[in-house]
Design a binder for these strands. Structure first.
Length: 471
RNA sequence: GCCCCGUUCGUCUAGCGGCCCAGGACGCCAGGUUCUCAUCCUGGUAACACGGGUUCAAAUCCCGUACGGGGUGCCA
C-alpha cells in the first residue's frame, strides 16, 4: 500500500490554463505511476476572485481529459476555521503578530525604501507592538492582519527533485501576511495547513511558485512539523518567442482545444512531452503508456515553448491510431454541429474511415466530408480551388468526359473516370483536382472515386454539370 | 533595484567526463508511392549562448558574463 499522496490545487479564478493542465497531468501521472493517491483541492481563499463557474469548469475539463482524482474536490473556502486556528497557534507561539498597517501604507513605505536603495517589503513596524498599543489601534478602528515573522538571518534551503538544492537568504524575504485584515486566510497558510493535514508527500507545481516554497516550509515548521514533502518545480510553458504563453499565441484554455477537435489523449501526450520524455525516445504514447513510462526524475529544468504544430501532428497520430467506431463517435458532435439535418449515419461512418488517414483534427474530418451532407445547390466552391480549376486548359473537356462517364457507368464503390480522361490525351493525375473541386467543393479532400460513389449518380452529375456550366 | 531559476538544431528533446566533428521527433526542403492534396517511405537542412578554469579528455564539473523566465501582493 503506497503512502504517496499528490494534489492538484488550482485557483478557480478563470479558465484552466494549458500550463495548469500540464501541472495536473504530471501530478496525476506520478500518482498513477507509483500507485499513489491523487487529490483535487480548490484553492479558493481569495473569495472575491473565485467563481463557482470556474470550479465547475476545472472539474469538467479534468473529466474530459481523463485526469480522474481519488479524493476531493476539497474547497479551501470550507476550511477557513482550520487555517485561522493554525494562525492563532502561530501567533500564540510568537511566530506571527497582528499588523495594523494598511495595504497602501505598506506599499508606499516599501516603494520609498526601494527609492532610497534599501530592501523593499514590509518594514516590520508592527513586529513588537505591546498589548496596549494593539488595543489602541483597534480602538482607532484599525483592522489587523496577521503577519508571519520571517527569520532575520540565515538561509532557507530545500531540495528540489528537478533542480537540486534551492536556497535563499532569509533577509530578502520580509514578514508576510497569512490572514487578511478581513479575516480570510492567505494562500501560503492554507497551502501549508492543507498539505500537512492531507498528508501530501509530493508537491509538483510550476516554477513560478519556487520562491513561495520557502515561506510554506517556514509555516510548516511554525506549526511544529519538521518533515518536508518532496518538492519538484516544473519549468513553465512559454509562448512562441519565449514570452509568456497567452491568448495572442492561440488557444490557452483546454476548452478551445476541445472545440477545435483535439483528442484528450493527444493533448495529454503533447503536454507530457513538454518538459519530459520517456527513456526509449518514443513520442506517440497513450495515457496508459504515459503512466507506465513517466519518471519524475526525468523532468527537465528549463522552460519549454509551446508548439502548436507538433500538437497537431500528434493529434493526427492519435486519430489514425483510433479504432474506427471510437473515431466515429468522436467526430459525430462536430458533424452534428455542422450539418445535423442532412447527416446520414452509414454514409458518415464510411466517410470517417476515409478521412481518418488525412486529418489532424476532428473538426477537420467533419469539414472534409461536409460536401456529402450538403444539398447539391448549396455546395460552396472554395475560391482558390476554383481558380486552380480554371487554370487547367482542358477543364471543360475533362468535365464533359467525366459527366459522360458518370451517366453511363455501372455503379460500384469506386467510380473511376481515369480512362475517359486519358482518352482525351490528358494525364489524369494532372487534372484530378478539377473533379475534386466540382464534386467536393475544393481541390483536396476525401478520395474522389469513393466520394462520387457515396454521393450517388444524380448528385454527382448535378455538381459536375454545375461546374461545367460555370466555366 | 534585489532575490531565485534556467540556457543543446526554428521548436520539443537525447546526452548525466571519453561511445558525440552531438542522436531522435516536429517543422522545412528534395525525391518516391498514390485518384490532385493528405497519409506513407527515403534523403537533406539545422544546435552544445560567450569567456575563463579543472582534467590526459567537457555539451557534460567549477567560476564569471550575456541573455531569457519567475518572484519581490492583505493574487495563487
Amino acid at each position: 500500500m503506497s503512502q504517496v499522496r499528490l494534489r492538484f490545487s488550482p485557483a478557480p479564478t478563470g479558465f484552466l490554463h494549458i500550463g495548469s493542465v500540464r501541472t495536473a497531468l504530471y501530478n496525476w501521472l506520478h500518482a498513477r505511476h507509483v500507485g499513489g493517491t491523487f487529490v483535487l483541492r480548490i484553492e479558493d481563499t481569495d473569495v472575491a476572485r473565485s467563481t463557482q463557474e470556474s470550479v465547475d469548469q476545472i472539474q469538467s475539463v479534468m473529466h474530459w481529459l481523463g485526469l480522474e482524482w481519488d479524493e476531493g474536490p476539497y474547497l479551501q473556502s470550507a476550511r477557513f476555521d482550520a487555517y485561522l486556528g493554525a494562525a492563532r497557534r502561530i501567533v500564540d507561539a510568537g511566530g506571527a503578530y497582528e499588523c495594523f498597517c494598511t495595504e497602501t501604507e505598506v506599499r508606499e513605505r516599501s516603494e520609498a525604501a526601494m527609492r532610497e536603495g534599501r530592501a523593499p517589503g514590509y518594514d516590520g513596524r508592527c513586529r513588537e507592538l505591546t498589548a496596549a498599543e494593539r488595543a489602541e489601534r483597534t480602538a482607532e478602528g484599525r483592522a489587523a492582519s496577521i503577519r508571519f515573522r520571517t527569520p532575520d538571518e540565515g538561509r532557507s534551503t530545500f531540495t528540489d527533485l528537478i533542480r537540486g538544492e534551492v536556497s535563499v537568504e532569509w533577509s530578502t524575504i520580509s514578514d508576510f501576511v497569512i490572514v487578511r485584515s478581513n479575516g480570510t486566510p492567505v494562500f501560503f497558510l492554507a497551502n501549508a495547513v492543507d498539505d500537512l493535514e492531507m498528508g501530501i508527500t509530493h508537491v509538483l507545481r510550476g516554477e513560478d511558485l519556487i520562491d513561495s516554497t520557502h515561506r510554506v516550509l517556514a509555516l510548516r515548521r511554525a506549526l511544529g512539523r519538521d518533515d518536508t514533502p518532496v518538492y519538484a518545480h516544473m519549468p513553465l510553458i512559454l509562448g512562441p518567442g519565449g514570452a509568456k504563453l497567452s491568448k495572442r499565441h492561440g488557444a490557452v484554455s483546454v476548452e478551445e482545444y476541445r472545440e477545435a477537435g483535439f483528442l484528450p489523449s493527444a493533448l495529454l501526450n503533447y503536454l507530457a512531452l513538454l518538459g519530459w520524455g520517456p527513456e526509449d525516445g518514443r513520442e506517440v504514447l497513450t495515457p496508459a503508456e504515459l503512466i507506465a513510462e513517466f519518471e519524475l526524475e526525468r523532468v527537465n529544468s528549463s522552460p519549454a515553448t509551446f508548439d502548436a504544430r507538433k500538437l497537431e501532428w500528434l493529434n493526427g497520430e492519435h486519430i489514425r491510431a483510433m479504432p474506427l467506431a471510437e473515431l466515429v463517435s468522436a467526430v459525430l458532435p462536430f458533424a452534428r454541429a455542422r450539418y445535423a439535418t442532412r447527416l446520414d449515419i452509414p454514409r458518415f461512418e464510411k466517410a470517417v474511415s476515409l478521412a481518418q488517414l488525412r486529418a489532424t483534427t476532428l473538426a477537420q474530418i467533419a469539414d472534409q466530408m461536409a460536401f456529402l451532407f450538403t444539398a447539391d445547390h448549396d455546395l460552396e466552391i472554395d475560391a482558390s480551388s476554383w481558380e486552380k480549376l480554371e487554370s487547367v486548359e482542358r477543364a471543360a473537356d475533362v468535365l464533359d468526359a467525366v459527366i459522360g462517364f458518370v451517366e453511363e457507368c455501372p455503379w460500384t464503390d469506386e467510380i473511376d473516370p481515369r480512362a475517359v480522361i486519358e482518352m482525351l490525351g490528358v494525364k489524369p493525375g494532372k487534372v484530378m483536382h478539377v473533379i475534386y473541386t466540382a464534386v467536393e467543393g475544393r481541390s483536396q479532400g476525401l478520395p474522389i472515386f469513393a466520394a462520387i460513389s457515396m454521393l450517388g449518380r444524380e448528385s454527382s452529375l448535378y455538381r459536375l454539370r454545375a461546374a461545367r456550366a460555370r466555366l
